[in-house]
């Protein structure tokens, strides 16, 4: 049975090649060690960031890259108000360039209703995405613990390229604590495949990220240009809150119930 299946698959492969079907096998790029990377805030390890996938992408007539980064908390009961920021730092044939905006600019550029920004915040995920499992949440690690992107374009766009700078940050109002970042990207080749940029870790943000973030005007206009709302990258301890565990919450309520029972018994 296995022999038959193997022969059948080989026949399919032969027919596809004979028919001139062009396809690209996904090629993964190596991630510089360490991966997972320790994530420190003010010298304290709050978790690790693992690049679980960085590879070329091809689907139908589109090529590009795909990447996934997962943050795992050291202490599951802590919440650090995590967000992701991503800037397009350079490119040819980017969405912003098509609208007269040259890199660097923050991703996403537009594609909200009416061609506006999706929301008036500088983060990569919208708030509903940031708090949804399988989108901005890595299993039980809370909002903002997952990053994923599969940028792509027509495989006929030979010579087009795009470069990204991506960062995991902890946010307290307008203050942004930079935790870790990385650069990546891809180029569309003449043979309708794509080539990955080397992946590189960053310990501090470059001007390509800080520029458009601090200039963020809080409007829905993708071109921006309004008065900055005041986002700034700061040092110091990250904002953190403790998430009450369900069991602890239950015990607290049992205790309160006990007090109520005791008070009632005294009245009787």
């Amino acid at each position: 049975m296995n022999l038959l299946r193997s022969l059948f698959l080989r026949l399919l492969l032969f027919l596809a090649l004979a028919a001139g079907v062009h396809f690209q096998v996904a090629e993964a790029a190596s991630i510089p060690a360490p991966n997972p990377m320790d994530i420190l805030c003010n010298g304290v390890k709050i978790g690790t960031l693992n690049i679980t996938n960085y590879a070329t992408y091809a689907n139908g007539g589109s090529v590009g890259a795909t990447i996934e980064a997962l943050f795992t908390k050291t202490d599951p009961t802590m919440d650090y108000n995590l967000k992701w920021i991503q800037a397009i730092t350079d490119g040819k044939g980017t969405i912003g360039q098509a609208n007269g905006t040259n890199p660097p600019y923050l991703d996403p550029y537009d594609l909200g209703p009416g061609g506006q920004r999706e929301d008036n915040l500088p983060w990569y995920w919208t708030d509903p995405e940031n708090m949804t499992a399988g989108v901005g949440v890595n299993d039980g690690n809370g909002p903002g613990s997952r990053f994923s992107d599969t940028p792509s374009q027509s495989n006929a766009n030979s010579g087009n390229f795009i470069k990204f700078e991506t960062a995991l940050v902890s946010v307290d109002g307008l203050n942004i604590h930079y935790l870790k970042g990385f650069t990546w990207g891809y180029t569309v080749n003449a043979d309708m495949t794509s080539t990955l940029d080397p992946f590189a870790w960053l310990n501090t943000p470059t001007d390509n990220l800080t520029g458009p973030t601090t200039a963020w005007d809080g409007t829905l206009n993708p071109k921006g240009g309004g008065k900055p709302v005041g986002y700034q990258f700061v040092g110091g301890a990250c904002p953190c809150t403790t998430i009450p565990e369900p069991g602890l919450l239950g015990l607290t309520l049992v205790g309160l119930a006990g007090f109520a029972i005791r008070a009632r018994a005294r009245r009787c």
Partner: peptide, 13 residues
Amino acid sequence: PQRGNWEKNVPVV
């Protein structure tokens, strides 16, 4: 639907 060039492009299973 719009076509072509995606910068934020996330598959949600």
